[in-house]
Design a protein around this nucleic acid. Structure first.
Lengths: 142, 142
DNA sequence: GCCGCCCGTCAACCTCTGTGTAGGATGACG
DNA sequence: CGTCATCCTACACAGAGGTTGACGGGCGGC
């Protein structure tokens, strides 16, 4: 159906995070912004160029230091980048996040990752129903 | 109690794996053996020298390629090296494994990682009881 | 229109990860 | 005791990982 496949490559996964995890006001983070935030917030340096290289698949084999820094910034466990099962699980949450933004919720922490499977499913369903109610004419969006 | 602390550094974690995950006949894997097994078994090359450097803390920032290869070899999820919570969880299993070896079980797959928390606790308890029964005079071992 | 700002892109460069190779220790075997 | 095998240790070097700096383009303000 509609749903985009779960991302496979590291680049895909990173891009999915950029696409989904946004700052207040729904603008995507820029590579520069992420690089600066990580370099300042954590004691790990990373260049915006390198982030770009990772996103475009030009570099595919980062060290654990950079990978953990990126994961920390986006609020996902490092395993998101490494374990495909974990990726699938967390993508559910990201999907949920995307849905909520569409429904008008602008900013929300990623801590929904800590909810149980059942709770997430329930919320997802609820969001979907509400969204259908509020956007009656729109068939196959998302 | 007796139990050694959960390993903190990458070197500690790796050493713990060497110490606990052994081949049939209970001999520890050598760095050379692991390097060869990985280079042959997976399509990832790694040198025994490098494994040594990681074990001794001389190198601390490997790439995800090598880290996943090592994790795959030892049969633990990559998160073992990265996520401290995951490390603690899996260390329970390793402890269990060590206990079973002491109790005479020489070789066992690490698949106990897939058991539930409760099942693992039950097995651990059972092993402890049996071991006490079979080694009455030994107070604070393990 | 022009200027300033910030973005993504690119190529050259530098650092550090990861390798090759060899020395010294230890134990098994004859 | 000598030889062989295999381990851990050491160190210098190749190359991949990561950075620096510059260029061109889109966008808003004066």
């Amino acid at each position: 159906m509609s749903a985009d496949e779960s991302p496979r490559t590291l680049a895909d996964k990173l891009n999915r995070l950029f696409q989904t995890v946004r700052r207040q006001g729904d603008a995507e983070y820029s590579n520069v912004a992420v690089a600066e935030a990580i370099s300042k917030g954590q004691d790990v340096q990373i260049s915006h160029t390198y982030i770009w290289q990772l996103r475009t698949g030009r570099r595919v084999n980062p060290t654990i230091m950079h990978l953990t820094a990126l994961a920390a910034f986006f609020g996902v466990p490092v395993a998101y980048f490494l374990d495909d099962a974990e990726t699938a699980r967390i993508d559910k949450d990201l999907e949920l996040l995307a849905g909520m933004r569409k429904a008008g919720v602008t900013h929300i922490a990623l801590r929904s990752a800590e909810l149980t499977q059942g709770s997430r499913a329930a919320i997802t369903e609820m969001v979907n129903q509400l969204w259908k109610l509020e956007n009656p004419s729109d068939e196959d969006a998302r």
